[in-house]
Design a protein around this nucleic acid. Structure first.
Length: 735
RNA sequence: GCGCGAUUAGCUCAGUUGGUAGAGCAACCCGUUUACACCGGGAAGGUCGGGGGUUCGAGUCCCUCAUCGCGCACCA
């Protein structure tokens, strides 16, 4: 070895090995404390008066392990956060866990089922404790996997939806809604899952198209049609349009006697304008307890409502001989009986219609009248609409704005009561006598405020989205916490487009309602991660890609940038192993570029002297500055897929294939000026590439940085490159 | 029924305000020249879903149709 031969770290002589690197680098970051903006200020990497940048992580459901969708969240959000941190913002990325009420309970019930147990009949407290243990155990696992992805979130601020202070905020919001008469307890039609024994909001429903027989039945002088004869036992109102000429001989309120399923009944004629004369015979009977349209008519007209089907999907005594029978079993038998009585006009065997099913188990949801808590959404939605229509919140991609507006304009009241154990208990008392509900945060109410009757604790829990809908301000300690004052409103809400209504829109409404401010300025929505064939991943199809297998095989960096490049917001992404492999090669390419640059340079630290650059290198620098300028602009516009491609192109096709090759010739020449200039340029460029690439591929870039700088600084808190002739290093120059 | 997307090279997708079609992967040919074979060089590959319109000029704007995907509302 000659004296002037540079000493290359022997590590660089072998291909880049993520396995030897990632855990060590993550520990280096975590130990540095720089994930916490307070530490950044303390150690001087960020100015105290720097502009804050806040991103609240969608709280991970603590009921399983990391899937490809989480991988995408981490890749995108960590990219955003690392970029902002390097731009000099006081950057907070707050991680969290969601107890995920019903979702988790379903997962846990499956586990119980496998063990031959069931939640029904279990002691409530016992069940709660078991699910809590399960959740806490999973959360450790999940957090380990979030770390594996390289996430630079502030663990010291981690929140759980069941933390005392979060629950306190949720309770106060509930009370405020109650005091403002925006939450009410009332008997309303809800969608009831007979398997899970709980009601849902209008969102937890999956519509399924089915072909089923459709029955035309003789109801006295009328013919009515139905796909659900088993609900018809109690039908004693027959409704038609007041101006329907066919039925003008009948008067509103008129009683008629007729033979029905279980014998003679007296029916009442109702004339109502909500009836569509064009549909069928223009006559229908109503079942207010099990149909929302019928319920609405009955409410409006003050008609009686009678329950026909119980909570288990079995017929009640009104069904006579069919009592206790499961509706599925009862239907053909009822039709048989009707046929024998000559009451079936005809049957259409190929009737196509949509049934509402439980989005988890596919069980047909039974509309039932239930006394539950509902939030009046119209007033909340109106405020949100005003904000959204005035573009106070930026949607990426834009068309989600339209989708949100459309939903808000047609919003329904939100049922927030769930009949499950796993969740935040509703702090309310229910009157045993009159059913009145009273919010009671201090547990002081002992008699009904309306009828002085006895009260009991509401046994229900909140819809999990009611608590997560308050996540941005609940996590930051609304209203008095310093973090709330510094970091709210947050900057970006990055999450799956799928939960635009469930979560994003409700956060906007509740955020505006509680804090009076928008909860975030930008909504960035990503699509689904599909398999290589473009199929949705599902356990039953067996095409689920485990992100940890891919990171293990190709490295986290390769996985991350593979999720970014070729992925535009809002559209789904096909994930193929070929693609990830290609970026593994890219990480190695960068590694070898470093080896070439360092092995040709005698001094690792050069004073940058652009004036003495050769003419050629000045041109190259100009080209590079232009690229940096473009890239920075695109980063600010959240066009990461473009930046990823550009930096990939530049490093590989431009820097490696052309500039490095050309450098070999220059280094063999005799012009000292050109040699020095080129060496400076190579080092300058490597520095810029590492910085730009860091948010995309944090591990390999940091590892190279550590090798070059011999551990004297951390790339994650270096400044984002500005072009050499323009200052654009961020909102605040921190030097 | 209403709404929102998508349709560009074999595959996955870019294509900013209309100005000669791009990338990655795969496939093909050549090449072991000490940064890298987890590589290099080269060539090939598209009437931008169909039709119509606006324009000097359309992948891009307008209309229409088709196919696929996704929401919302559903009707007794």
């Amino acid at each position: 070895m000659r004296d002037d031969e540079p000493v290359i770290d022997p590590k660089l002589l072998k291909p880049y090995n993520p396995k030897d690197t990632e855990d060590r680098i993550y520990k280096l970051w975590e130990d540095s404390g720089f994930f916490n903006p307070d530490v950044c200020i303390e150690k001087g990497t960020i100015k105290e008066d720097a502009e804050p940048f806040t991103l609240i992580m969608p709280p991970t459901n603590a009921n399983g392990s990391l899937h490809a969708g989480h991988g995408l969240v981490m890749a995108i959000e960590d990219l955003i956060v690392r970029y902002k941190r390097m731009r000099g913002f006081k950057t907070l990325w707050l991680p969290g866990l969601d107890h995920a009420g019903f979702e988790t309970q379903v997962v846990y019930e499956r586990k119980l089922e496998k063990e031959g147990r069931t939640r029904f009949g279990m002691d409530k407290n016992e069940l709660y404790k078991e699910i809590l243990d399960f959740t806490l155990h999973n959360s450790k696992n999940i957090n380990g996997q979030v770390r594996k992805m390289g996430s630079s979130c502030d663990w010291s601020r981690e929140k759980f939806t069941l933390d005392d202070n979060v629950v306190k905020t949720v309770y106060q919001t509930f009370k405020k809604l109650y005091d403002d008469e925006l939450v009410y307890r009332g008997n309303r039609i809800v969608s009831w899952c007979t398997k899970h024994q709980t009601s849902f909001s209008d969102l937890e429903i999956k519509d399924e198209e089915r072909v089923e027989p459709y029955y035309y039945l003789k109801y006295g002088p009328f013919v009515i049609s139905t796909s659900r004869p088993e609900t018809k036992f109690g039908d004693k109102y027959v409704v038609m349009h007041p101006s329907d000429e066919r039925y003008k001989e009948y008067k509103d309120g008129q009683k008629i006697d007729l033979e029905w399923i279980n014998g003679p009944i007296t029916a009442t004629i109702i004339k109502d304008e909500s009836i569509d004369m064009e549909f069928g015979t223009g006559v229908m009977t109503i079942t207010p307890w099990h149909d929302s349209v019928d319920f609405e008519i009955a409410e409006r007209r003050g008609l009686e409502k009678e329950q026909i089907i119980d909570e288990n999907g079995k017929l009640l005594p009104i069904a006579g001989e069919f009592t206790e029978m499961n509706i599925k079993k009862a239907r053909p038998l009822i039709i048989e009986k009707l046929q024998s009585k000559g009451l079936v006009e005809k049957i259409d065997e190929n009737y196509k219609h949509v049934v509402r099913t439980c989005y988890k188990c596919g069980t047909i949801l039974e509309p039932q009248i239930k006394n539950q808590w509902f939030i009046k959404m119209k007033p909340l939605a109106e405020k949100a609409l005003e904000i959204i229509q005035n573009d106070k919140i930026k949607y990426i991609p834009e068309h989600y704005k339209k989708i949100t507006v459309h939903w808000l304009l047609n919003i329904m009241d939100w049922n927030i009561s769930r009949q499950i154990v796993w969740g935040i208990p509703i702090p309310a008392k229910i009157c045993v006598k009159c059913g009145n509900g009273m919010v009671d945060l201090e547990n002081k109410i002992s008699k009904c405020e309306k009828c002085k009757g006895e009260v009991k604790q509401d046994p229900d829990t909140f819809d999990t989205w009611f608590s997560s809908g308050q996540w941005p301000f609940a996590t930051l300690g609304y209203p008095d916490n310093k973090d709330f004052k510094t970091y709210y409103p947050t900057d970006v809400m990055e999450t799956a487009g799928e939960i635009i209504f469930f979560w994003v829109s409700r956060m906007i409404m509740l955020g505006l309602y509680v804090t009076g401010k928008i909860p975030f300025k930008t909504v960035y929505l990503h699509g689904l991660v599909l398999d290589a064939k473009g199929q949705k991943m599902s356990k039953s199809k067996g095409n689920v890609i485990d992100p940890l297998i891919l990171t293990d095989k190709y490295g986290t960096d390769a996985f991350r940038i593979g999720l970014i490049i070729g992925n535009t917001p809002g559209t789904s992404l096909s994930l193929s192993e070929d693609k990830i492999r290609a970026y593994k090669n890219y990480a190695n390419k960068l590694w070898n570029i470093t080896r070439f640059v360092l092995s040709n340079i005698d001094e690792v630290e050069y004073e940058e002297d652009f004036d003495n650059y050769s003419k050629k290198d000045k041109e190259l620098l100009k080209e590079q500055d232009k690229l940096i300028e473009e890239i920075t602009k695109e980063m600010d516009e959240y066009k990461f897929y473009i930046v990823g491609e550009k930096i990939y192109q530049y490093t590989w096709s431009r820097f490696a294939d052309v500039i490095l090759e050309e450098s070999k010739k220059i280094f063999a020449s005799t012009s000292e000026k050109e040699i020095i200039s080129r060496k400076q340029f190579l080092l300058h460029t490597l520095d810029k590439i590492l910085k730009i690439l860091h948010p995309f591929m944090p591990f390999v870039t940091e590892e190279i940085w550590q090798t070059m700088k011999k551990g004297s600084s951390l790339l994650m808190v270096e400044k984002w490159p500005a072009s050499t002739d323009a200052s654009q290093g961020g909102p605040i120059q921190n030097d």
